[in-house]
């Protein structure tokens, strides 16, 4: 019961903030609503017994990445929008992708893939599920290779950023 109430609460706030991210004109307000989305989703993670992911979500996304977003938005001082596409073309693209997503969902629903999503008794959680210790264990055993590859990707990105920043534009 408590869980259902909390789930509805976090879902509603997440959707509310997400809608605002799209419809707000002011870039800083958009960024703030995105922080709201991230916090709500972190609440949902807690309900899923994934406390570690929830904390990391706040720490990394809401606490660091969004601060950098804000930083850039403030430095660039974005006033109004400078659209990449003409309004007509943007609407065309929007309708195309929305239609594509709709057809895909319809196809999944009709092809019986939806039965996967019907209510089943929840599986029992293995002991220590979602705890930092357990996540660390599987990251360094089962998923060691993808984990290391990700870290090398990040390293490449860091080095790339430094090289770009150091390049002299004559």
């Amino acid at each position: 019961m408590t869980e259902a109430i909390l789930f509805s609460l976090f879902s509603i706030t997440a959707v509310f903030f997400a809608v605002n991210v799209i419809f707000r004109r002011n870039a800083v307000h958009c960024a703030l609503h995105l922080v709201g989305v991230l916090l709500s989703i972190s609440g949902l993670f807690v309900l899923l017994n994934a406390q570690f992911i929830a904390a990391i979500q706040i720490l990394v996304y809401a606490g660091a990445i969004m601060v950098l977003f804000l930083f850039v938005v403030m430095l660039l001082n974005v006033r109004g929008e400078s659209p990449l596409l003409t309004p007509g073309a943007a609407k065309g693209f929007g309708f195309f992708f929305a239609a594509l997503a709709f057809v895909e969902l319809l196809w999944v629903a009709l092809s019986g893939g939806g039965s996967e999503g019907t209510a089943r008794p929840p599986a029992a959680l293995p002991p220590g599920f979602g705890s930092p210790a357990e996540i660390g264990r599987i990251l360094y055993s089962t998923w060691l290779f993808p984990f290391e590859v990700t870290s090398i990707l990040l390293l490449i990105a860091v080095i790339g950023a430094v090289v770009l920043a150091k390049r002299k534009f004559a």
């Binding site: 800083v28 706040i58 601060v67």
Partner: peptide
Amino acid sequence: DVNIAILWILGTTSMGVYGIVLGGW
């Protein structure tokens, strides 16, 4: 007493910066 107390503290303090950044903006 949460089992992720230190992460919790780092998370909340990293949110604290918003007050200053937004106040300034």
